[in-house]
Design a protein around this nucleic acid. Structure first.
Length: 319
DNA sequence: AATCCGTGGGG
DNA sequence: TCCCCAAGGAT
């Protein structure tokens, strides 16, 4: 399973793809990117709790769920509380799902809390309480998609996987494709490129994955990239092309005010704070428009985030 | 493939 | 102020 630098097929495929996208690449790793990026990472990586050895695979998995669309700064305190309360998957699986939703706090997208609880239960039932090591088994868990499966396998278990998140996609778009931003949806070409750029050595591949993510998060940011601090600025295709502005249609701006999501958020905020079941009349006060309010509440119930009780009362789910 | 799903901080 | 967007996943 482990590739070596001498493996002909992998190396050849990588070289072809890379040379097609980046003709000037001639150094040992095919691109000249590995050394500068991993060296930069060694010096500048943040000391995040889920990167410490004691975090374990469960800590890595919890962090990955929380970091799906939520910034590090907001995840940090909730992560610490979560791991202190539920240090193993079995601990979370033994709780009511509503407690996971409550502990999720204001991280947003609370369905992630429900899925993390469901993942903990699945880990308990299918894997004896240990976070599985295999990508396919990780991918089968609730709330674990292509990215999270690769991230856990790579960061927790040191395996060789292409970890393609929004940061890595942006770094590759700029450094290799010469564009300011990656495509809206992840393309086959991006996956192919990510695989081609992945170092053959397993340990180096895992460090490369973390390093490219960190570079995108700290230096090669979406808005104001700090190219003066970038270890690969001299090789960056986008920069060499004169940093051309993004072509094509503007990214779809996600509206929030007045949407069902906002109403769901207001309803759930009330239920999170409540110790006892909440009467319908209290929920009615959070939004003026009755049709949308009812639709939002129905949606929360359908998602399993809210449990309806007799007498028009509601609470976070016990089962 | 396009939409839906929260929340808050920074420019 | 308003707008962008932040370690995605499911349908």
């Amino acid at each position: 399973m482990t590739s070596t630098p001498a493996t002909p097929t992998a190396t050849t495929a990588a070289a072809e793809t890379v040379s097609a996208a980046f003709p000037a690449a001639e150094s040992a790793d095919g691109t000249g990117l590995h050394g500068p990026v991993t060296d930069w990472f060694d010096e500048h990586a943040r000391d995040l709790p889920w990167r410490r050895p004691e975090a374990g695979a469960w800590g890595v998995m919890v962090s990955e769920f929380m970091l799906q669309q939520t910034p590090v700064s907001r995840v940090l305190p909730v992560y610490e509380q979560w791991l202190a309360r539920w240090p193993r998957p079995a601990d979370l699986a033994a709780e009511a799902p509503g407690e996971a939703v409550r502990a999720w706090g204001r991280l947003g997208y609370p369905r992630r809390a429900l899925r993390l609880h469901a993942a903990a239960s699945a880990i308990q039932e299918r894997h004896g309480g240990d976070v599985p090591r295999e990508h396919a088994q990780l991918l089968a868990l609730p709330g674990v998609g292509e990215y999270t499966a690769a991230a856990v396998a790579s960061f927790a278990y040191g395996q060789r996987h292409a970890v393609l998140d929004t940061n890595v996609r942006r770094v590759f778009a700029r450094a290799v494709a010469g564009r300011q931003y990656p495509p809206n949806a992840t393309t086959a070409a991006e996956r192919k490129l990510a695989r081609a750029l992945l170092p053959a050595d397993e340990d180096l591949a895992a460090r490369w994955a973390a390093a490219t993510m960190e570079l995108g998060a700290l230096v090669c940011t979406a808005r104001g990239p700090e190219c003066v601090r970038c270890p690969i600025a001299a090789q960056c295709a986008w920069r060499l092309a004169g940093s051309p502005a993004h072509e094509g249609p503007a990214r779809r701006t996600q509206t929030y005010a007045g949407t069902d999501r906002q109403v769901r958020g207001k309803l759930l905020a009330v239920l999170r704070e409540a110790v006892t079941p909440v009467p319908q009349t209290v929920l009615d006060a959070v939004w003026h428009e009755p049709v949308q309010r009812a639709r939002a509440l129905d949606g929360l119930v359908a998602d399993g985030l809210v449990e309806p009780l007799a007498g028009g009362r509601y609470r976070l789910p016990l089962t």
